[in-house]
Write a protein that binds this DNA or RNA. Sequence first.
RNA 1: UCGGGGCUAUCCAGG
Length: 236
Amino acid sequence: TVLETALLDMYTKCGSLEDARTIFQRMKNKDVVCWTALITACAQQGDAKEALELYKEMEAQGLQPDSPAYTSVLAACASLRDLSQGKAVHARILDSKTDIIDDILQNAIINMYARCGALEEATALFLRQRRRSSNSWNVIIAAYAQHGHPEQVLELYKGMALEGAEPDSITFTSILYAFNHAGVHKQGPVCFKAMQEDHGISPLPQHYNCMIDLLGRAGRLDEAEELINSLNYKPD
RNA sequence: UCGGGGCUAUCCAGG
Protein backbone atom coordinates (compact mmCIF):
# COMPACT_ATOMS: atom_id res chain seq x y z
CA THR A 1 0.00 0.00 0.00
CA VAL A 2 2.81 2.37 0.81
CA LEU A 3 4.55 1.77 -2.49
CA GLU A 4 1.35 1.98 -4.44
CA THR A 5 0.49 5.29 -2.85
CA ALA A 6 3.95 6.60 -3.64
CA LEU A 7 3.44 5.54 -7.22
CA LEU A 8 0.01 7.11 -7.34
CA ASP A 9 1.51 10.35 -6.09
CA MET A 10 4.29 10.19 -8.64
CA TYR A 11 1.79 9.87 -11.48
CA THR A 12 -0.09 12.81 -10.08
CA LYS A 13 3.04 14.90 -10.04
CA CYS A 14 3.73 13.92 -13.61
CA GLY A 15 0.28 15.15 -14.51
CA SER A 16 -1.27 11.80 -15.27
CA LEU A 17 -4.51 11.65 -13.35
CA GLU A 18 -5.61 8.66 -15.39
CA ASP A 19 -2.72 6.52 -14.26
CA ALA A 20 -3.20 7.65 -10.69
CA ARG A 21 -6.82 6.53 -10.83
CA THR A 22 -5.84 3.18 -12.27
CA ILE A 23 -3.41 2.51 -9.46
CA PHE A 24 -6.03 3.47 -6.94
CA GLN A 25 -8.66 1.20 -8.42
CA ARG A 26 -6.34 -1.75 -8.30
CA MET A 27 -5.39 -1.30 -4.69
CA LYS A 28 -6.72 -3.89 -2.30
CA ASN A 29 -6.48 -2.14 1.01
CA LYS A 30 -7.30 1.50 0.72
CA ASP A 31 -6.32 3.53 3.73
CA VAL A 32 -6.81 7.23 4.44
CA VAL A 33 -3.45 8.10 2.94
CA CYS A 34 -4.17 6.72 -0.50
CA TRP A 35 -7.66 8.20 -0.54
CA THR A 36 -6.12 11.54 0.29
CA ALA A 37 -3.53 11.17 -2.42
CA LEU A 38 -6.23 10.67 -5.02
CA ILE A 39 -8.45 13.42 -3.64
CA THR A 40 -5.51 15.80 -3.89
CA ALA A 41 -4.81 14.66 -7.42
CA CYS A 42 -8.39 15.37 -8.49
CA ALA A 43 -8.56 18.68 -6.69
CA GLN A 44 -5.37 19.89 -8.32
CA GLN A 45 -6.04 18.69 -11.82
CA GLY A 46 -9.33 20.45 -12.19
CA ASP A 47 -11.62 17.65 -11.18
CA ALA A 48 -12.56 19.05 -7.80
CA LYS A 49 -16.06 17.73 -8.07
CA GLU A 50 -14.77 14.22 -8.19
CA ALA A 51 -12.56 15.02 -5.23
CA LEU A 52 -15.66 15.76 -3.17
CA GLU A 53 -17.31 12.58 -4.33
CA LEU A 54 -14.29 10.58 -3.31
CA TYR A 55 -14.38 12.20 0.09
CA LYS A 56 -17.98 11.17 0.60
CA GLU A 57 -17.24 7.68 -0.58
CA MET A 58 -14.35 7.44 1.81
CA GLU A 59 -16.49 8.44 4.74
CA ALA A 60 -19.23 6.07 3.61
CA GLN A 61 -16.69 3.30 3.94
CA GLY A 62 -16.21 4.19 7.54
CA LEU A 63 -12.76 5.69 7.22
CA GLN A 64 -12.04 8.58 9.53
CA PRO A 65 -10.44 11.49 7.67
CA ASP A 66 -7.34 12.98 9.27
CA SER A 67 -5.82 16.46 8.92
CA PRO A 68 -4.24 15.99 5.49
CA ALA A 69 -7.48 14.46 4.21
CA TYR A 70 -9.56 17.38 5.37
CA THR A 71 -6.97 19.80 4.02
CA SER A 72 -7.33 18.32 0.54
CA VAL A 73 -11.09 18.26 0.69
CA LEU A 74 -11.19 21.91 1.66
CA ALA A 75 -8.87 22.74 -1.22
CA ALA A 76 -11.43 21.10 -3.48
CA CYS A 77 -14.28 23.13 -1.93
CA ALA A 78 -12.22 26.27 -2.40
CA SER A 79 -11.59 25.64 -6.05
CA LEU A 80 -15.27 24.89 -6.61
CA ARG A 81 -16.26 27.97 -4.60
CA ASP A 82 -18.64 25.69 -2.80
CA LEU A 83 -19.30 27.47 0.48
CA SER A 84 -22.01 25.15 1.72
CA GLN A 85 -19.87 22.06 1.25
CA GLY A 86 -16.95 23.88 2.77
CA LYS A 87 -18.96 24.84 5.81
CA ALA A 88 -20.21 21.30 6.18
CA VAL A 89 -16.67 19.99 6.13
CA HIS A 90 -15.59 22.65 8.59
CA ALA A 91 -18.39 21.59 10.92
CA ARG A 92 -17.27 17.97 10.74
CA ILE A 93 -13.77 19.01 11.64
CA LEU A 94 -15.00 20.94 14.65
CA ASP A 95 -17.10 17.96 15.66
CA SER A 96 -14.12 15.63 15.72
CA LYS A 97 -13.52 14.10 19.09
CA THR A 98 -9.83 14.88 19.01
CA ASP A 99 -8.48 18.21 17.93
CA ILE A 100 -7.06 17.57 14.51
CA ILE A 101 -6.62 21.16 13.41
CA ASP A 102 -2.97 21.82 12.76
CA ASP A 103 -1.44 24.89 11.13
CA ILE A 104 -1.86 23.67 7.60
CA LEU A 105 -5.47 22.65 8.07
CA GLN A 106 -6.25 25.99 9.65
CA ASN A 107 -4.80 27.72 6.60
CA ALA A 108 -6.92 25.53 4.37
CA ILE A 109 -10.06 26.45 6.32
CA ILE A 110 -9.29 30.15 6.03
CA ASN A 111 -8.52 29.79 2.35
CA MET A 112 -11.79 27.98 1.76
CA TYR A 113 -13.81 30.84 3.27
CA ALA A 114 -11.78 33.41 1.39
CA ARG A 115 -12.18 31.77 -1.99
CA CYS A 116 -15.86 31.15 -1.45
CA GLY A 117 -16.38 34.86 -0.94
CA ALA A 118 -16.68 34.87 2.85
CA LEU A 119 -13.87 37.35 3.39
CA GLU A 120 -15.09 38.47 6.81
CA GLU A 121 -15.14 34.94 8.13
CA ALA A 122 -11.70 34.28 6.68
CA THR A 123 -10.34 37.44 8.24
CA ALA A 124 -11.83 36.67 11.64
CA LEU A 125 -10.24 33.23 11.62
CA PHE A 126 -6.94 34.63 10.45
CA LEU A 127 -6.86 37.18 13.24
CA ARG A 128 -7.55 34.48 15.78
CA GLN A 129 -4.92 32.17 14.36
CA ARG A 130 -2.12 31.40 16.76
CA ARG A 131 0.88 30.48 14.67
CA ARG A 132 0.83 32.30 11.40
CA SER A 133 3.31 31.00 8.86
CA SER A 134 4.25 32.74 5.63
CA ASN A 135 1.63 30.60 3.96
CA SER A 136 -1.02 31.87 6.36
CA TRP A 137 -0.18 35.41 5.34
CA ASN A 138 -0.12 34.40 1.70
CA VAL A 139 -3.63 33.04 2.00
CA ILE A 140 -5.11 36.20 3.44
CA ILE A 141 -3.07 38.53 1.22
CA ALA A 142 -4.18 36.62 -1.88
CA ALA A 143 -7.76 36.90 -0.69
CA TYR A 144 -7.65 40.67 -0.42
CA ALA A 145 -5.67 40.93 -3.63
CA GLN A 146 -8.32 39.06 -5.55
CA HIS A 147 -11.19 40.96 -4.05
CA GLY A 148 -9.55 44.19 -5.17
CA HIS A 149 -8.43 45.68 -1.89
CA PRO A 150 -4.89 46.91 -2.42
CA GLU A 151 -4.86 49.07 0.75
CA GLN A 152 -5.53 46.05 2.93
CA VAL A 153 -2.91 44.10 1.03
CA LEU A 154 -0.37 46.77 1.88
CA GLU A 155 -1.44 46.77 5.52
CA LEU A 156 -1.09 43.00 5.70
CA TYR A 157 2.32 43.18 4.08
CA LYS A 158 3.40 45.58 6.81
CA GLY A 159 1.82 43.38 9.44
CA MET A 160 3.82 40.48 8.14
CA ALA A 161 7.04 42.38 8.72
CA LEU A 162 5.94 43.40 12.20
CA GLU A 163 5.35 39.80 13.09
CA GLY A 164 8.61 38.65 11.58
CA ALA A 165 7.11 36.44 8.90
CA GLU A 166 9.16 36.25 5.72
CA PRO A 167 7.39 37.12 2.49
CA ASP A 168 8.27 34.89 -0.44
CA SER A 169 7.84 34.88 -4.20
CA ILE A 170 4.17 34.05 -3.87
CA THR A 171 3.56 36.91 -1.46
CA PHE A 172 5.00 39.38 -3.92
CA THR A 173 3.12 37.93 -6.85
CA SER A 174 -0.12 38.61 -4.98
CA ILE A 175 0.93 42.07 -3.89
CA LEU A 176 2.02 43.20 -7.34
CA TYR A 177 -1.06 41.62 -8.86
CA ALA A 178 -3.26 43.57 -6.43
CA PHE A 179 -1.61 46.90 -7.18
CA ASN A 180 -1.66 46.31 -10.88
CA HIS A 181 -5.31 45.34 -11.10
CA ALA A 182 -6.58 48.03 -8.80
CA GLY A 183 -4.70 50.74 -10.62
CA VAL A 184 -2.63 51.66 -7.60
CA HIS A 185 0.71 52.39 -9.13
CA LYS A 186 2.78 54.10 -6.47
CA GLN A 187 3.64 51.19 -4.20
CA GLY A 188 4.41 48.63 -6.88
CA PRO A 189 7.95 49.69 -7.65
CA VAL A 190 8.66 50.16 -3.95
CA CYS A 191 7.65 46.57 -3.18
CA PHE A 192 9.45 45.24 -6.23
CA LYS A 193 12.63 46.85 -4.95
CA ALA A 194 12.11 45.67 -1.37
CA MET A 195 11.54 42.14 -2.63
CA GLN A 196 15.03 42.05 -4.08
CA GLU A 197 16.97 44.23 -1.70
CA ASP A 198 15.38 43.41 1.65
CA HIS A 199 14.35 39.83 1.05
CA GLY A 200 16.85 38.60 -1.49
CA ILE A 201 14.20 37.25 -3.83
CA SER A 202 15.05 37.29 -7.50
CA PRO A 203 12.12 38.34 -9.63
CA LEU A 204 10.37 35.66 -11.64
CA PRO A 205 8.72 36.26 -15.01
CA GLN A 206 5.37 36.86 -13.32
CA HIS A 207 6.87 39.66 -11.24
CA TYR A 208 8.39 41.31 -14.29
CA ASN A 209 5.12 41.00 -16.15
CA CYS A 210 3.22 42.69 -13.37
CA MET A 211 5.75 45.45 -13.08
CA ILE A 212 5.97 46.17 -16.77
CA ASP A 213 2.20 46.24 -17.02
CA LEU A 214 1.90 48.43 -13.96
CA LEU A 215 4.49 50.93 -15.12
CA GLY A 216 2.85 51.04 -18.50
CA ARG A 217 -0.56 51.82 -17.03
CA ALA A 218 1.00 54.45 -14.84
CA GLY A 219 2.38 56.13 -17.94
CA ARG A 220 5.92 55.54 -16.80
CA LEU A 221 6.92 54.18 -20.15
CA ASP A 222 10.57 55.02 -19.84
CA GLU A 223 10.88 52.94 -16.69
CA ALA A 224 8.92 50.10 -18.24
CA GLU A 225 11.22 50.12 -21.21
CA GLU A 226 14.23 50.21 -18.97
CA LEU A 227 12.98 47.11 -17.15
CA ILE A 228 12.38 45.30 -20.42
CA ASN A 229 15.82 46.17 -21.65
CA SER A 230 17.40 44.97 -18.45
CA LEU A 231 15.83 41.59 -19.14
CA ASN A 232 17.49 41.26 -22.50
CA TYR A 233 20.89 41.22 -20.91
CA LYS A 234 20.09 38.49 -18.44
CA PRO A 235 21.68 35.14 -19.03
CA ASP A 236 18.98 32.60 -19.72
C1' U B 1 11.45 2.82 15.27
C1' C B 2 10.99 4.17 10.30
C1' G B 3 8.20 4.73 5.65
C1' G B 4 3.50 6.67 1.12
C1' G B 5 -0.84 11.58 1.21
C1' G B 6 -2.15 17.71 2.95
C1' C B 7 -2.84 24.59 2.57
C1' U B 8 -1.37 29.86 -0.66
C1' A B 9 -0.12 33.45 -5.95
C1' U B 10 0.68 34.42 -11.24
C1' C B 11 0.55 32.41 -16.10
C1' C B 12 -1.28 28.33 -19.19
C1' A B 13 -5.02 24.78 -20.19
C1' G B 14 -9.99 23.69 -19.33
C1' G B 15 -14.98 25.69 -18.98
